Simulated scan of single mutants.
Amino acid sequence: MDNKNNIDYKNINRWRLILGSFAEDNIELDNEYYEIDTALDFLYDREYSKESGYADFDSENEYRGGKEKSSLTVPIWVSKIKKLFPKKTVEIMQAQALEKYNLTEMLTDENILKEMEPNMELLKNILTFKDMMSGNVKKLAYDIVRKVVDDIKKKMESDIKKVFYGKKLPNSYTQNKIFKNLDIKKTIRNNLKNYNIEDKTIFVDKLYFNQNIKKYNPWHIIILIDESGSMLNSVIYSSIMASIFSNLPYLSIKLVIFDTSIVDLSHSVKDPIDVLFKVQLGGGTDIVMALEYAKKITTAPDKTIVLLISDLMDSNDYRYMYKSAMDIIESRSKLFVLPALDYNANESYDKKAAKQFAKIGAKVAAITPDELSKWI
C-alpha cells in the first residue's frame, strides 16, 4: 500500500461510515463524506446514549459515543437525509427513527412531517401515533395517508378487477362479438367440416362467442377485522379491499372492526382512510363476539361470505370461538379465516387454532389480496 494510487479511498471511507465515531481517531474521513457521517451519527449514535437504554462502556467503564459533534435538529436531519441518501434508504432511516429510537417528534411537528417520504411504513407509524397529533398536523397526516392508500388501492384495484371482470359463461351465446368473448373451442369444433387436408387449415365461416358472466351476482361479504397491534398490515389492506369490493355492483359489503368491542363501519366502507383513522390498535381480542355479530347481521346465509381477519389469539375459551364458527358454516355461509392479508402474506398467528378452523370446515390461509379475490 506504499503506492498512494493503490489505496481504495472510497472503500476506506465506507468502512469509516460503518464503524462510526469509534473509528474517527484512526481513519480520516474525506470532506465529501462528512455530511453523511453527521446524518448517520445523529440517528445511530443514540444506540449508545444513556437516554436510549443502550449504554455501552469500555474497559475503564467510561461512557462511549455521544460526543455532541452534531448540531442537527430533527427537522434539519429529515430534510438532509432526503438529499444525501436514496429514497429506499430514507424510508428505512425514517422508520428506525420512529420505531427504534422513538423520535415521535417527526409525526407531531408539522414542518417535519411535510419533509417525510410518504410510504407504507410512514402510514403505519401515523396510524400508531395518530392520537398524539392535533390540528394542522392531523390534517397533514390525513393527506399523507390518503396519498399512500390511493397508491396501494390502484395496484389492488387492478389485480382485483382482473379477477372479477372478463369471466365467460360457458354454453351461452351473445351478440357482443368482441375478442375476449370468443369461444375458440366451439368455433373450431363447428367449423371442422371446412378443414382442408392439403393445406391443413380450417376455413372459418362462423365465429361463436360466449356471453359475459351475468353482471349482478348478489353475494354478501361480512369482513371482521381484528385491530390488535400485530394485525396492522392486514387492517390496512383489508380496509382498502373492502372499499374496492363495495364498488362492485354484485357484492354487498359489511365492514366490522373489533377488539373487546364491536365497531360497525359499514357506512364508511367506501372510504378506507376514514376507516383507518377510526382503528384503535392494541387491546384485547374477542373473536367470539365478532363471529356472533356476523351471525346477527347475516340475512341470506347461503349467499354470505364471512371473512375473519385475525391472528386467532382470542381472550376467551377457544371452544366458544369454534362453536360460533361452526354455527356460521352449518348455516351454509362460507367462512374464510385470514391470519394475514398483505402482498407479503406475512403471518404471525395461533397455528393450532388455524388448524382447528380448517378442520371444522373454514377455509384458512395467509394470502395476498389478489389471491383472496380469486378465492371469492
Results as ranks from 00 to 15, higher is better:
111 N>L: 10
261 S>F: 10
15 W>I: 11
259 D>V: 05
99 E>P: 02
25 D>Y: 12
301 P>H: 10
340 A>V: 03
91 E>G: 04
26 N>M: 11
313 M>Q: 13
147 K>W: 02
314 D>Q: 06
236 I>G: 00
190 N>D: 08
104 T>D: 06
190 N>I: 02
34 Y>H: 15
375 W>A: 06
76 I>D: 12
8 D>T: 05
266 S>L: 03
62 E>Y: 12
351 K>E: 09
192 L>M: 12
75 P>E: 10
369 P>Q: 09
92 I>C: 04
53 G>N: 11
161 K>M: 13
172 S>Q: 04
61 N>E: 13
142 Y>V: 05
213 I>E: 13
151 D>F: 07
82 K>P: 02
315 S>A: 15
205 D>F: 08
300 A>K: 15
317 D>I: 10
349 Y>M: 07
282 G>A: 04
169 L>D: 03
44 Y>W: 15
171 N>S: 05
150 D>M: 12
2 D>G: 09
227 E>I: 14
83 K>Y: 12
216 Y>L: 06
284 G>T: 04
207 L>E: 03
371 E>K: 14
37 D>Q: 13
32 E>T: 08
257 I>G: 00
183 D>C: 08
143 D>Y: 06
153 K>T: 07
230 S>F: 00
284 G>Y: 10
240 I>P: 00
38 T>M: 13
127 L>G: 00
90 V>D: 02
93 M>W: 11
111 N>Y: 11
9 Y>G: 01
244 I>N: 04
70 S>I: 05
16 R>K: 15
111 N>M: 09
240 I>S: 02
355 K>A: 14
125 N>D: 01
358 A>Q: 15
31 N>Y: 10
16 R>L: 04
43 L>W: 10
194 N>D: 01
318 Y>I: 12
93 M>E: 01
324 S>M: 09
242 A>D: 01
345 A>R: 15
18 I>W: 07
170 P>H: 08
230 S>L: 01
43 L>E: 03
372 L>Y: 08
199 D>H: 14
125 N>Y: 07
252 S>G: 05
187 T>V: 03
373 S>P: 03
360 I>V: 15
215 K>S: 05
335 L>S: 09
116 M>H: 04
351 K>I: 06
91 E>H: 07
246 S>M: 04
112 I>M: 08
296 K>C: 00
374 K>P: 00
267 H>F: 12
150 D>L: 13
70 S>T: 15
30 D>F: 11
311 D>E: 01
198 E>G: 04
153 K>P: 00
325 A>H: 07
121 E>I: 04
115 E>K: 14
222 I>R: 03
243 S>F: 03
327 D>L: 13
357 F>G: 02
158 S>I: 10
340 A>L: 05
184 I>D: 01
374 K>Y: 11
313 M>C: 06
251 L>F: 15
185 K>C: 04
72 L>Y: 13
201 T>I: 10
265 L>N: 01
40 L>G: 03
206 K>A: 05
30 D>S: 14
318 Y>V: 11
169 L>T: 05
288 V>N: 08
226 D>A: 00
140 L>M: 14
